[in-house]
């Protein structure tokens, strides 16, 4: 910045620190709650400092879970979430990169129609077609299964657009040189385009992993068997009972465990995360 004004610098840091605290406070409270015993939530105010029961709360939730809430141990739900998030991310990336490749590097009848068909998925979030989509999945016998959790969510217009946008910036001459060098379409895709897309794939994976992890409505609809509960929807069931029977320590331990994987991904892969987020929205 141009001026050197100590007051302005102070104000800047103050704003940021207040921002960071406000953003972190709800999670801090949750963490504190997850370290106490059940009895600590009877009094008038939640505890504000850590308690001694952290390890036992977490291990209890991880290994046993609250059977009263009809939810399995967190370990199972975390595994389901992991399978779902990774499969959705990988699935979206594969089918989108193939579609984008077809649309950019080939000319064929109905190319425009294909593009618009993919585009339309942007306008049909699951929230607006809940019942008929549920019916399709149910008719296909995909309720209470991994494919039912995953496949209906793997169409992706944004990922297709990101790859299309990226392919358009790859110099035409690269494909021409590869053709002169004797590479056919599949060889060019594998040897040249895929390696060049590595960063985009990684960035997209981060975003899509989070997308898959935080899904709530869809798992809520298609799973009734607790074997297939994902952690995000399982937590809701825990919380629903927590109010009547205040086991906030367990609920919050579960909340912390459910948040941790995607938050870690964001923090550890911040550069890719920012790139993925900003570029998919173009």
């Amino acid at each position: 910045m141009i001026e050197n004004r100590p007051f302005l610098a102070f104000l800047t840091h103050l704003v940021l620190i207040v921002g960071v605290v406000v953003v972190a406070f709800p999670v801090y409270l949750a963490f504190i709650a997850s370290t106490h015993g059940s009895g600590d939530f009877m009094r008038g105010l939640v505890p504000l400092l850590p308690g001694p029961h952290m390890i036992e709360n977490y291990s209890y939730m991880f290994n046993v879970g609250l059977s009263t809430a009809g939810a399995p141990p967190l370990s199972i739900m975390l595994l389901n979430s992991l399978v779902m998030a990774i499969s959705i991310a990988v699935g979206k990336i594969i089918i989108s990169i193939l579609s984008a490749y077809a649309i950019v590097y080939f000319k064929f009848p109905f190319r425009l129609l294909a593009f618009w068909t993919i585009f339309i998925t942007l306008m049909l979030p699951v929230e607006v077609r809940i019942i008929p989509t549920f019916k399709v999945v149910s008719d296909l016998g995909m309720l209470n299964s991994y494919p039912g959790l995953i496949i209906p969510l793997i169409a992706s217009a944004t990922a297709t657009f990101l790859f299309r946008q990226f392919f358009l910036t790859v110099p035409d001459e690269l494909m021409e040189a590869a053709r002169v060098d004797g590479a056919g379409p599949l060889k060019f895709f594998r040897d040249i385009l895929l390696p060049l897309s590595r960063t985009n794939i990684a960035a997209l994976f981060v975003i899509l992993f989070i997308y898959g992890w935080v899904q709530y409505l869809w798992p809520l609809l298609v799973t009734t068997d607790s074997k297939y509960y994902t952690v995000v929807m399982g937590i809701k069931r825990l919380a629903a009972t927590a109010d009547a029977e205040p086991q906030w320590n367990f609920v919050m331990a579960a909340v912390m465990l459910a948040m941790l994987p995607p938050v870690l991904v964001v923090i550890l892969m911040q550069r890719l995360f920012v790139k993925g987020l900003v570029e998919t929205e173009k």
Partner: peptide
Amino acid sequence: KEPAERDIAMVFQNYALYPH
């Protein structure tokens, strides 16, 4: 014939080297 079958080689303006 496909470019590869014509037995020609081409040098492009932007070189078109495979960057990876």
